[in-house]
Simulated assay, not measured.
Amino acid sequence: MIRNISRTLVATVAACLMAFSSLGYARAIDETPSALAMAGDAVFVRPVLLATTILGSAVYLVSLPFSLLGGNAEEAGEVLVVGPAKATFVRCLGCTKSGRKPETVEQSDK
């Protein structure tokens, strides 16, 4: 029983990592977080958001039959799974808004 739950948990986390590593889900943000904000995000916030994503996925799976009957399965998935996963995986370290930082290309004069 515990082994099946842990396999399901690992599969859910792997699916979230693959789904939200795509650039299609990202939007550009322009923030400059401090070193303290980055450290706090890495040590405290990201683990909590990962746990929220996993818990939201479990709640979504349990409530899926009811959501399907009610016609709001997509909305429930967006709120319970996609939102926390975006905040966990598609956000620069220390930033407060979800999205990727724009890539800056510096041209050096030779």
Rank of each mutant, 00 (worst) to 15 (best):
A19D: 07
Y25M: 01
K86P: 00
I2A: 13
L69F: 12
A85L: 02
L64C: 05
L50W: 05
G71C: 01
Y25G: 01
E103T: 06
N72R: 02
V59C: 04
K97Y: 10
S6A: 14
V59F: 04
P102Y: 04
G94H: 07
V62L: 15
V105T: 08
V82N: 08
A15Y: 10
L36V: 09
S21T: 13
A14Y: 11
L93P: 05
A51E: 06
A39S: 04
A42N: 03
K97I: 05
I29F: 05
V10D: 12
L9T: 15
L80R: 01
T32Y: 09
A11W: 00
S108E: 08
A58N: 00
V79P: 06
L68F: 05
P84E: 01
L69S: 11
D30T: 13
G70K: 03
T53W: 05
L93E: 09
F66L: 14
S6I: 08
V45S: 08
G24R: 07
L69Y: 12
L93K: 06
S6Y: 09
V62W: 15
T8K: 05
T12V: 08
L49R: 14
L55S: 07
A85D: 05
P65W: 12
P65R: 06
A11L: 02
L36D: 11
S67M: 12
S67F: 13
A26T: 10
F89H: 04
N4D: 12
L61F: 03
D41H: 00
A28W: 07
P33R: 12
E74W: 02
D109T: 15
L50P: 01
T88W: 14
V62R: 15
R27Y: 07
R27M: 10
Y60N: 07
L61Y: 03
T96P: 04
V105W: 02
K86M: 10
G77C: 08
T104N: 14
L61P: 00
G24L: 08
M38C: 02
A42G: 06
N4L: 06
C92V: 11
L69N: 11
L23E: 01
P102R: 06
N72C: 03
F20C: 00
N4Q: 10
A14H: 10
F89Y: 11
Y25E: 02
S108L: 14
C16I: 04
Q107Y: 13
A73V: 00
A11D: 03
R7L: 13
I29M: 11
L61Q: 04
V10R: 10
T88F: 15
E74K: 02
A19M: 11
S98V: 05
V90S: 15
V13H: 03
F44L: 15
R46V: 02
T52K: 01
R27Q: 13
C16V: 05
M38E: 06
N72V: 04
F89M: 06
P33F: 10
E31R: 12
A15F: 08
M38L: 03
K110H: 13
N72F: 09
G99N: 15
A35F: 11
